[in-house]
Simulated assay, not measured.
Amino acid sequence: MMIDLEHVALTYQSPDGEIEALRDISFTVEEGEFVSIVGPSGCGKSTLLSLICGLEPPTGGRVLVDGKPVTAPSGRVGLMPQRDQLFEWRTIWGNVTLGLELEGGPGGAAKAQTQMLLEQYGLGAFAQKRPSQLSGGMRQRCALIRTLATGPRLLLLDEPFSALDYQTRLSVSADIHGIIRREHKTALLVTHDISEAISLSDRIVVLSRRPAVVRSIHDLSALRTLSPMERRDAPAFREFFNTIWKELDINV
């Protein structure tokens, strides 16, 4: 399995004392899966991603990636945050190769791979443009290519579509989902949008309010052969939505 969370807990200090954010979180993500995490605002969804990518340690339990405990950030894991965080003073090429520069500079193979990703996903002609010259959807594709350029096997997506308008969000989320599938990556998405989670995922992990525990895990195998847009028209979509909505409503 790609990710294994074993009884993970996190308690942190605040000016008002200790805050228990996560309690006894256990679930796995298999290699090649697309799994979403949903839960009430402030329940610790993004905090889980921080633990998985090694930005902070848990105070209890273990986080394993590829069977190895996570103790620090690793090239195996790529994080795509809420905002695209593109630098306006750098070209699109300069932005997508930033991670490679931090690793010592893009070698020939990495440079060719990054150029191929730009061409394949519609940004080849924009390599020397600035981020302000791109649409919102193009900026998100650029941010994903920057993450893919360093060759991670696991992608952590922290509400990457939340800043987009509804129509663009539908299109871009389906687009990003297709790229992740074609690149054979494992993905863990944090989102507040139940519909988005159902349309993109193989499974959905539902968290309770803080301190977060795993309330349920939903297997979406009934929808797996459908595209994200086709899923939204399937009868099972509404059933999953209603079930998850009720689970979240109990905890808000």
Rank of each mutant, 00 (worst) to 15 (best):
S26P: 05
G17Q: 01
E247A: 15
R146H: 05
S36G: 11
I194R: 08
L51D: 02
R238Q: 14
E30Y: 09
V172H: 09
Q140C: 11
T91Y: 06
E20W: 06
R210A: 13
V213E: 09
S208H: 06
V190R: 11
E119N: 14
E20C: 10
G104C: 08
P81M: 12
W245G: 06
L157C: 13
G78C: 13
R182Q: 14
G32A: 13
M80A: 09
L102V: 13
E18K: 01
A187M: 06
A234Q: 10
V213A: 14
R231F: 04
W89V: 04
Q82L: 07
G75K: 11
G104V: 05
R232W: 00
R146E: 01
R181W: 01
S74A: 10
T191S: 13
G60H: 02
F161Q: 10
A174H: 05
L156P: 03
I180W: 11
P106Y: 02
T47D: 00
W89A: 14
V205Q: 08
A234T: 13
D158H: 06
T186D: 09
G136V: 10
M229H: 12
R215N: 14
G107T: 05
F126Q: 00
S135K: 07
H184T: 03
S41V: 06
E20H: 15
L102R: 12
E33F: 10
I176D: 09
A236P: 01
P58F: 03
G78P: 15
V252Q: 08
R83S: 15
G44D: 02
F161P: 12
E230Q: 15
Y121L: 04
T168Q: 08
A72C: 03
A143C: 03
E33C: 04
E159R: 04
V29S: 11
V29Y: 10
T168A: 06
T47P: 03
G94E: 03
L51V: 02
L189M: 08
L188A: 11
H7Q: 14
I180H: 12
G54Q: 05
K45H: 10
H7D: 15
E230G: 07
W89T: 11
I198T: 03
L118Y: 01
T147M: 07
S201H: 05
Q115G: 03
L123Y: 02
N251F: 05
L155I: 15
D202V: 01
E159H: 09
T11L: 02
P58K: 00
D193C: 09
I179W: 02
D165M: 08
